[in-house]
Amino acid sequence: MPSETPQAEVGPTGCPHRSGPHSAKGSLEKGSPEDKEAKEPLWIRPDAPSRCTWQLGRPASESPHHHTAPAKSPKILPDILKKIGDTPMVRINKIGKKFGLKCELLAKCEFFNAGGSVKDRISLRMIEDAERDGTLKPGDTIIEPTSGNTGIGLALAAAVRGYRCIIVMPEKMSSEKVDVLRALGAEIVRTPTNARFDSPESHVGVAWRLKNEIPNSHILDQYRNASNPLAHYDTTADEILQQCDGKLDMLVASVGTGGTITGIARKLKEKCPGCRIIGVDPEGSILAEPEELNQTEQTTYEVEGIGYDFIPTVLDRTVVDKWFKSNDEEAFTFARMLIAQEGLLCGGSAGSTVAVAVKAAQELQEGQRCVVILPDSVRNYMTKFLSDRWMLQKGFLKEEDLTEKKPWWWHLRVQELGLSAPLTVLPTITCGHTIEILREKGFDQAPVVDEAGVILGMVTLGNMLSSLLAGKVQPSDQVGKVIYKQFKQIRLTDTLGRLSHILEMDHFALVV
């Protein structure tokens, strides 16, 4: 994948999101292997301009796509893939009243899908469409860049269908997702969380590099694949309309690839034109409109599966009536509230959605109805927002919020430890010299600072030695090549209790 991002070429006709291997024109390309080798690009942008032909009021008969309808489940399912879809609609009884809503608040519980998330729908649909058009064949390999849930859905379907599955996901995604993927037989590649989507090191860039190296491999490409919004247009939206008897006044959905909100909203605009569509985008993402909503100094966020630093091709923002931004604290607070007060075992993005819903639905009156999409299960986040310690460490809970008995030293300040200034190293000294210094002084790690004293990161003896043994660096290389740029900081005025929580999850903390 090139470091400079080429513009994806656009073909003359058809839909841009065809499933299957992508040609340089962004659509299915038939021909000899030699032709494909000559024409197939190194990668295709996940934010390529959409060429979708959908228009409100256009006859369904003019759609270029294969459409399906929700099917009634048999008493005995032939395999677990038949437990994807037909998820329950559940009334939220307490939270709406707590925040003064007059309307009825309903939750579409997508964590009841077989793999635990709304992404099971698009995973199965992308595979079925690729099999139907002859792209996927027995023994082929599926590769997908994902925040985890699409990966789980694909790995689940691949396990049943017999495909090899490789999932490329950023490091910030939970260990629970990784464990589930491994249990399903998927191979996992992790990428830096802070890598831009168009960087060769991003999950998108690495996935395309693997595709170019592995024979008979395919990126189904949830960011561009029409099967993504079509899955929701054909099934999720129809289920909502049936469950609500066609009567709903507002739908609120958090947005990642945009397939969920695009597919549902398009069908609702056709069948229930008075329904307002509300999009939820986390602070630090750029999906919301108008652009002024996205202006923030924050560039990272903890909530998973929603928000991006690019506009995915499948996201149709014209069908969203209003956007709201959400933050991590309210997302996790509301997710825990949904679990504790409503018994809905949902993930953090569901918290984002409901946090926005109780604001947006203030305009609705008694007798009206708001539906929220709860995308995934708490299963993926047992060591994250479900953990009091994690919430404390991230600053989303305060010590006084917890009532468990603490040891005698818990409320003492870090400054009472009488710490001395640490050994520091410059980023320009060599790895070999740094190892000598650390061994001589008896230290395992040291902060790396520039000549102005600005902290650049941390270097550890173990990481340097393993990097040297693996051949990633040489003793003569500058130590700046092996620094940890993500590390926890703590102030002298913070409590030892807070430091204790940090050290339970990290090997060190830097006192500043």
Rank of each mutant, 00 (worst) to 15 (best):
H66V: 14
K39P: 12
I219K: 02
I142H: 02
C52A: 01
G20T: 10
T68E: 11
T236C: 04
S23E: 12
N93T: 05
L105W: 00
T146P: 05
L154C: 01
S27Y: 08
E187S: 09
G100V: 09
E239K: 03
D35T: 07
Y223F: 08
E187A: 08
L230C: 14
G14R: 08
P74M: 13
A8Q: 11
L156K: 01
A231Q: 07
L101K: 04
L81Y: 06
G57T: 11
G116N: 13
Q55R: 15
A265Q: 05
P6L: 15
P138N: 10
T235M: 07
K177V: 02
V118Y: 02
N216G: 05
R161Y: 10
P16N: 06
N113W: 00
D249N: 06
P78D: 08
C272S: 09
R164S: 14
A24R: 11
S3L: 15
P273N: 06
T5E: 10
E110Q: 06
A130P: 01
Q55S: 15
G162W: 03
G274L: 09
I188D: 00
L210M: 08
D120N: 08
G151C: 01
G148R: 02
E29K: 14
K172Q: 06
N216A: 08
P21K: 11
K39Y: 03
A159Q: 08
G139K: 01
I84G: 08
K36A: 10
G139I: 05
G134M: 10
G96W: 11
T13I: 10
K172W: 00
I261C: 09
P46N: 01
I264P: 02
P64Y: 04
A237I: 00
P16I: 12
R164Q: 03
S50K: 07
E40D: 12
R190I: 04
V255F: 03
L101P: 00
R182N: 04
N149K: 01
R91V: 03
L124R: 06
V90P: 01
K137N: 13
L124S: 12
P21R: 06
A265N: 06
R161G: 10
T5N: 11
A186H: 00
H218Y: 10
N228A: 04
L184N: 01
A237P: 07
R18M: 05
Y163P: 01
A8L: 15
V168G: 04
P2E: 12
C244T: 02
G259W: 00
A130Y: 00
K211N: 14
V204L: 15
V206Q: 06
T68I: 15
C165T: 05
L230T: 09
K247Y: 06
G26V: 14
S174E: 03
L251I: 12
K75C: 12
V252G: 09
R190L: 05
T257H: 01
L56H: 09
K39I: 06
T235Q: 12
K247L: 11
P21C: 11
I84T: 12
D79Y: 08
S19F: 10
T5Q: 09
K36N: 15
K247I: 15
I261W: 01
E37K: 14
P12S: 12
G57A: 15
K267Q: 15
Q7C: 12
C165P: 00
G139C: 10
A183I: 01
G259T: 00
H65I: 04
G259M: 01
V90Y: 03
G205E: 09
V204Q: 08
T235L: 11
K97G: 14
G11T: 09
T53N: 11
G162T: 04
P49Q: 09
V206M: 14
I142G: 03
E171L: 02
C103K: 01
S202L: 02
A158K: 02
A48I: 10
R224T: 09
A157G: 14
E187I: 10
R190T: 04
C103M: 01
P6H: 08
D179V: 05
K97Q: 12
I127F: 10
A231I: 07
E131D: 12
E213D: 13
K98L: 07
H218N: 12
L81K: 07
P138M: 07
L106R: 10
D198G: 08
T146R: 01
